[in-house]
Design a protein around this nucleic acid. Structure first.
Length: 935
DNA sequence: AAATTCACG
DNA sequence: GACGTACGTGAATTTC
């Protein structure tokens, strides 16, 4: 066989994506026995490759062969037209992890496997087909994709591997009504709904072929469009000329790509038995392993029947080198950095970590970046470490030596960090992504080890890196305190000596990569891939955007309120001291308790281990009926709270650069799937009291804009009605009834017309109690009624709605059996305490009852948030805040109603299509110049 | 650092 | 029969 491709050579090009899709859909959802990894498509793919090899042995056998894959999702066609392939359904979750494995399979069979960034597989095939034809060889494309038919002719033909049908010039003519050279013209006119190529509206393949045959070419047709007799057709071709020409560019394959390999690299090779056997046994394909072992005359390796849970590391995880901070690389010049970028591109992923001067990602400065592409191999790129560290007396602002310019480093890293084909792995990646965004780098796509841990292990343990490293890698990372110190002498990271920083920072990247390699295969095993992929991973950029937008807060309003509160507090304090007969710290529960119970001798007892009197609001409220002092203290406390936590503290959080307040959402903060908000917490801005609600007046829209608030009405009760299957409640929600009044009517046999607000209030408390895992004691305390009476309410409630009791018992039983509960969307919430004895068991049971309800509501609003940026992309609106069942937007005033319509639709339909609730979700909306008006 | 209190859903 | 209890959060303050 000649070593140079030429006459007599026969090239086979296999459309890899088509093979994978066919394999995926043709086979039942097989999973790998040892760990549940979905493997059906890989299995089908291997069988197809094997059948292909077996069927190509005769005199017409190919001399060269390659399987061509797509790489990344962004190609030059997306630059031409951003809607290209935009209507494609997302890839099925079970399929995604199998894609890289099919590439591995191709390599294992020793068949050339090619892909190229920015191009579709079709372009590579087009280029190779042209090269091969020009060299005098023959080409067979194994695909039935009509987009490839433009390549047919002059020794290039297609073979539909499904029907085993040859597609030559006649075949193309049959399909398109024109020869291969005019296929793109027809496609440009007819468009393609699958790839979202617009084409000419109203013109299909038939008409297109007719026109092209009449005028000879698309260009001729467009130039002479005036001559067309049919008025509608003529008008379309004239008006949509640009769209048609764009469509042609989209369907035209690039036959002239620069490839980093030659045809000679595609020569047919025999598979290496060891490599192939290793792959097949790792996939645990028993039949195929045996069949190929026989064929290759080797011993079939044994495949263990099952792997004991957690006993062995996965077969594909080689022994990792120990974590050794001495071995990490200090990158200080462009060449070294470029080498790391190249390595990351080669692997297709890279763990990234940033070091900064602080923990606030909106205000800190970037100090350095660490990368890791393989366990044990990591580097740190210091960028802004100061010279003279530790000698603050003479410290100046000059940079320490051994650092490349930050702009050069960022310019070098940007293409990598923004490359859709390279996965960036981080621990709490939202932080790093926000820092990078402030330096003009949009990191994507990302994976986050913190969120992987959260998806798998919520409720079992925390998800910080130190905890994860201890637990899953048995390694204690270098404590940050060792570098920064603590307390008053604490320094910032830019003052850490670079040699110390290298060890610490690179170790973080190394650990993150190892955690990712540990967690990635476990996502499938624990059945949370969908949760991670739909509720966690895509939320990261959404939250990052919201946080970066922030909300405008008016300092003057807050400042004025602070002054008023201070005055009122001073007045109350004076009165309290007078009533007490002595001066004391009103803010001290200990001193207050002594005044109330020792000095004044009021009823009330000691509490807890500390022996201090309890002086909570509920106790003071009871005392307030008899005495003025506790009443005044209650007033004082309310003002104190509002002043210190809100009107004062919020001002501190107004960002100097943006003039806005930027909260930080904790995505893995709450075990149920809820978000938490911190620094500052914007999820607990007062609303229940009139005085408190006025603080919301300080949250304002920019000039010409308004704030819009949309909130789910009774979402948790609706979810309960669905999950517990309570027909009466479901019907009431469908009818849009007042659910608390309806509950009251059912329970107390009061007709709706005779409902009183007091009865309704009691029913409302019961409804909420149910969601929290009701107890007689708790309800009694909430309603301030005798415990026996509260228990009577609950008994009657369960009698009337036996399904609720059933749901609670079922949920408790499920939690006991599995040590966890689940939301409707498959989120896991672990409840290890459920097995505890004593009072803790009660806690755990109530938490287990509440978690699926609260968690499902959290899942639904997360789904809405993930969809929202796309849905409102065309509106002058930004999503700013989430408060558990409420989303707050800032929008150009004249577009507020459009936004409300769009956002409402997204929110009300957010459970679909995964979950079809038996009750409607209803969203209420409001708008105004500030949050108080919008709510 | 823990305990207490209180703001929200 | 007695435990002690509404579910989920974050922040400010006092106390140890």
């Amino acid at each position: 066989m000649s070593t140079n491709f030429g006459k007599g050579c026969h090239l086979h090009l296999i459309d890899g994506s088509a093979f994978i899709f066919r394999a995926f859909h043709a086979l039942p959802p097989l999973t790998r026995k040892s760990d549940g990894l979905p493997i059906g498509a890989v299995s089908g793919f291997c069988n197809m490759l094997q059948r292909y090899i077996d069927g190509n042995t005769g005199p017409d056998a190919p001399t060269h062969v390659a399987v061509i894959f797509d790489k990344g999702s962004h190609t030059f066609r997306n630059d031409l037209y951003d809607q290209y392939k935009a209507n494609r359904d997302a890839m099925p979750e079970d399929m995604r992890p199998q894609i890289p494995l099919t590439r591995e399979a191709t390599v294992a069979f020793n068949i050339a496997c090619k892909e190229q960034e920015g191009f579709e597989a079709d372009d590579i095939m087009a280029t190779l087909a042209h090269q091969a034809r020009d060299a005098g060889g023959r080409v067979t494309i194994l695909s039935s994709d009509k987009d490839l038919m433009q390549l047919v002719g002059d020794g290039v033909e297609m073979l539909d591997p499904m029907k085993n049908k040859l597609i030559d010039r006649d075949g193309v003519f049959e399909k398109f009504g024109v020869g291969p050279e005019r296929v793109v013209d027809v496609q440009a006119l007819a468009g393609d709904s699958v790839d979202n190529v617009p084409g000419a509206p109203g013109i299909g393949i038939k008409t297109a072929a007719l026109l092209i045959n009449e005028y000879g070419s698309l260009e001729e047709l467009l130039d002479r469009a005036e001559e067309i007799k049919q008025p509608k057709r003529r008008q379309t071709l004239i008006e949509k000329r640009e769209q048609i020409e764009l469509s042609k560019k989209l369907v035209q394959l690039d036959c002239d790509m620069e490839l980093d390999f030659t045809l000679d690299d595609l020569e047919v090779r025999e598979p290496d038995p060891d490599t192939l056997m290793e792959f097949l046994t790792r996939m645990e394909f028993r039949t195929l392993t045996k069949r190929l072992a026989d064929k290759l005359n080797v011993e079939a390796p044994a495949i263990p029947d099952t792997t004991p849970e957690g006993a062995n590391p996965p077969a594909d995880a080689p022994e990792w080198p120990a974590i050794d901070p001495e071995k990490y690389e200090h990158v200080s010049d462009l060449a070294a950095l470029e080498a790391w970028v190249a390595r990351a591109r080669e692997t297709g992923w890279v763990a990234v970590d940033t070091e900064t001067t602080g923990v606030n990602d909106m205000t800190c400065d970037l100090v350095g970046i660490s990368l890791s592409v393989q366990p044990g191999e990591a580097c740190y790129i210091p960028l802004a470490h100061k010279a003279n560290a530790g000698d603050d007396l003479f410290a100046d602002n000059s940079l320490a030596p051994g650092q490349m310019p930050m702009s050069e480093a960022l310019d070098t890293l940007r293409p990598l960090l923004e490359d859709p084909a390279v996965l960036k792995i981080g621990q709490n990646m939202k932080f790093d992504a926000k820092v990078f965004a402030r330096y003009g780098v949009d990191v994507a796509p990302i994976d986050d080890t913190m969120l992987m841990s959260y998806a798998m292990n919520a409720g079992l343990h925390g998800h910080g890196m130190d905890a994860l490293s201890e637990r899953y890698l048995s390694h204690t990372p270098i404590p940050i305190k060792d570098l920064l110190g603590t307390g008053k002498k604490q320094i910032t990271f830019d003052l850490v000596p670079i040699e110390d920083a290298v060890k610490y920072a690179a170790e973080d990247a190394d650990i993150t990569l190892r955690l990712w390699m540990t967690f990635k295969p476990q996502l499938h095993r624990t059945q949370v891939t969908r949760v991670y992929e739909t509720l966690e991973r895509p939320l990261v950029p959404v939250l990052a955007q919201m946080e970066r937008h922030g909300i405008k807060v008016d300092r003057q309003t807050l400042s004025r309120m602070s002054g008023a509160f201070a005055q009122k507090m001073a007045q109350l304090e004076e009165e309290i001291h007078e009533l007490a007969g002595e001066s004391f710290n009103v803010g001290s529960p200990k001193q207050l308790g002594e005044i109330l119970f020792d000095k004044m001798g009021l009823e009330g007892g000691k509490k807890g281990k500390t022996g201090a009197y309890a002086t909570g609001a509920d106790i003071l409220e009871d005392l307030a009926t008899e005495h003025d002092l506790p009443a005044r203290v209650l007033d004082w406390r309310q003002l104190s709270k509002l002043k210190s936590t809100y009107t004062d503290a919020l001002q501190e959080h107004i960002n100097a650069d943006t003039g806005r307040v930027h909260t930080s959402y904790l995505q893995s903060g709450a075990n149920t799937g809820r978000l938490a908000s911190a620094d500052p917490n914007l999820q607990n801005i007062p609303v229940r009291s009139e005085e408190g609600r006025r603080i919301r007046e300080a949250f304002v829209a920019e000039e010409g804009k308004v704030l819009v608030s949309l909130d789910y009405s009774q979402i948790e009760l609706r979810i309960l009605a669905h999950m517990a299957g309570i027909d009466a409640l479901k019907q009431a929600f469908r009818d849009g009834q007042d659910i608390h009044a309806m509950t009251a009517s059912e329970m107390f046999n009061v007709p709706m017309e005779e409902m009183t607000s007091d009865i309704r209030r009691q029913a409302k408390a019961i409804n909420f109690g149910v969601i929290y895992g009701i107890s007689g004691f708790g309800l009694a305390r909430n309603l301030r009624i005798p415990r026996a009476e509260a228990q009577g309410f609950i008994d009657r409630y369960f009698e009337r709605f036996p399904g609720i009791k059933q749901y609670m018992d079922d949920t408790k039983a499920f939690a006991k059996e599995h040590k966890r509960v689940e939301t409707l969307f498959g989120r896991l919430i672990h409840t290890p305490e459920i097995a505890a004895k004593g009072p803790r068991a009660g806690f755990a049971q109530r938490a287990a009852i509440n978690a699926p309800i609260q968690g499902t509501a959290a899942d639904i609003i997360r789904r809405a948030m993930v969809q929202m940026p796309n849905a409102i992309a065309d509106l002058p609106a930004k999503m700013l805040l989430q408060v558990h069942d409420e989303l707050i937007f800032e929008v150009q005033e004249d577009a507020a109603d459009d936004l409300i319509a769009v956002a409402k639709e997204v929110m009300e339909g957010a459970a679909l299509p995964v979950v079809q609730l038996d009750v409607p979700l209803v969203v209420d909306a409001g708008k105004g110049a500030n949050w108080a008006e919008a709510h």
